[in-house]
Design a protein around this nucleic acid. Sequence first.
DNA 1: CTGAAAGCGCTTACAG
DNA 2: CTGAAAGCGCTTACAG
Lengths: 360, 360
Amino acid sequence: MKKVSIKDIAKKSGVSITTVSIVLNGNGAERKISESVIKKIMDVAAELNYRPNQQAKSLRTGKTYTLGLIVDDISNFFFSHLAKTVEEEADKFGYTVMFCSSENDEGKSRNVLGSLLNKQMDGYMIAPTASMLPEINQLVQEKKPLVLVDRFFQTSPASYVTLDNYKGTFDSVTHLAKQGYSKIAIVTNDSEQIQIQERFEGYKTALRKHKIPFVPEYVKKIPFKYSAQKAVKEIESFIASNADIDAVLFTSNNLGIPGLESLKNLKKKVGEEIAVICFDDNDHFRLASPSITVISQPIRAIGKNALKILLDQVEKKELSQVRSVLQPNLIVRESTPVKVAPEVKQADTAGVKSKKRTAK
Amino acid sequence: MKKVSIKDIAKKSGVSITTVSIVLNGNGAERKISESVIKKIMDVAAELNYRPNQQAKSLRTGKTYTLGLIVDDISNFFFSHLAKTVEEEADKFGYTVMFCSSENDEGKSRNVLGSLLNKQMDGYMIAPTASMLPEINQLVQEKKPLVLVDRFFQTSPASYVTLDNYKGTFDSVTHLAKQGYSKIAIVTNDSEQIQIQERFEGYKTALRKHKIPFVPEYVKKIPFKYSAQKAVKEIESFIASNADIDAVLFTSNNLGIPGLESLKNLKKKVGEEIAVICFDDNDHFRLASPSITVISQPIRAIGKNALKILLDQVEKKELSQVRSVLQPNLIVRESTPVKVAPEVKQADTAGVKSKKRTAK
DNA sequence: CTGAAAGCGCTTACAG
DNA sequence: CTGAAAGCGCTTACAG
């Protein structure tokens, strides 16, 4: 009753394992195996409830039909939805996906990548941490199918799909400026990661364009490693000590949720006392009262694109670097109304800059 | 430059592959391989950037160090958090996890289970759909390590970890009754799944206990398959056509989010015009205004327990059925204040039942 | 202390 | 039309 193999089927059908293998792989007709033998083999296989051992197949053929996905944290809204899409799409092509969380940790990411490598994934989809650059380049050099998601390295030849992060924050600040806000804080991550940098650049450039002075005190950087609780505390004291800001931009889901909690704790009325924009949409931002204006990422498109790029490599259809940059989508909701300034000044961007702020 | 194997290391070190295998598995000392040979082999392996082929190892040893996880939908809050815990814990023991979404679909779940089976997982953790019963029993019969999560089959000898679902809804209704509500609706799934049934039982029993009549019109069952949008519409018309209800209980995250959206659309004031309790906690319920009273599941504990049960089977430490039932936690928030009835009746449960409702 | 050989379950030229 | 044999990259008795 133990594990049935093609050997068992061969014996029971009275043919060789070669024939069984051919038939089971659907090449019976092509190889002109007789109808009766094909039927016999199929029947016996079904009867014995045969399951091909993918390990053995892979060892022989070099294909595992398994893809490895490494993200920061699978429970994060963005990544779990990305994983869903990737899995759905992969399934269509007969691939299963193995996922790992890097926890944004150098050691952990090295470990999980190593273990995926040992398990011979057919391809790798990775949201890399900064420390992974050497490994990423090594993968490219070894010509392993690989696509980076959410982030990438400017110096690396690895393919990637990412968001136009710059545009995301640029559009946010532009929207805030148009609504009459001029004391726009940004809460972002303390990270060298390209997407974080670009979000910050978009913020600064948009301020300049709208003639709003850049105020270093309005910038808060939270380390990735902080727990949500710790982030809440930090953001709370940041907002409290900058009582004059009239708008705040959270550059990720992971910052926006704690951010809103901070504002709730401080009893700052969102949309009235302070305008809020968050990166990444989610249920809470949509359903909150007031609902939150967001920069939404086209998560499904990101996942689909990345998977396509990856499978094109796996199937050797496209091996050169492909860079896919998708556009974010500003969804205006209730948290960013036209500003009703105490001075009842016209909500005109040009007019707002006048009052030069002195460093505190 | 292609794939380095132990053969390459053997050649370069001038020893046999047997010796290489022994050393690489850390049994060099035990097998009394000379220090110098060990060092030589290790050096060569490092130099060649050797990676053991897990496929080959597995084929030989029968262990893949991979666990399969099948859930409804990995992007769902409950399951993505469960996945995170499972992955974290598995990693501690050297296992990687492969996840699949069954999408609550008979065909899809059969497919994903089949492909995991072919890939020879060391163990299976499954949130089974009703249709999976035969496959589940087959797994048990074949003595494959298996643990069910979130749901189980009363007739099946498979181990499981689940929530005391009955208590979850029972406590909810009790809380509502104590707060003075007596027209308590329930929005649940249209499903035979045990956990759904139990939640419904808890609701009915609690009503009886608090002498609140059970009103069939107050029950709304939404099919699993409905999209969130469709659920919103259904719940909206349900609430609209039962204007007299004073409280509503959503028996899952997947119902609570659309449910709150419905109430928002209807401009029904949560906590004032209608009390709300949801199953499963999440960011939105916690941060909403008013915040939502919930029955929270100890997701981490569920994941940890399930993984332990599974690994105990994998390592043959405990092979008999183990049933783990964890307790839910009622977190009272702002959506279920003491009822201020128009009649200013005492918030006394016994007194409330008086006014007999006529079927609409 | 170390190595030759068998075998895990498959596929794939090659031969007839 | 079908089969014998080699081999994928490992581990593991067994022998010396």
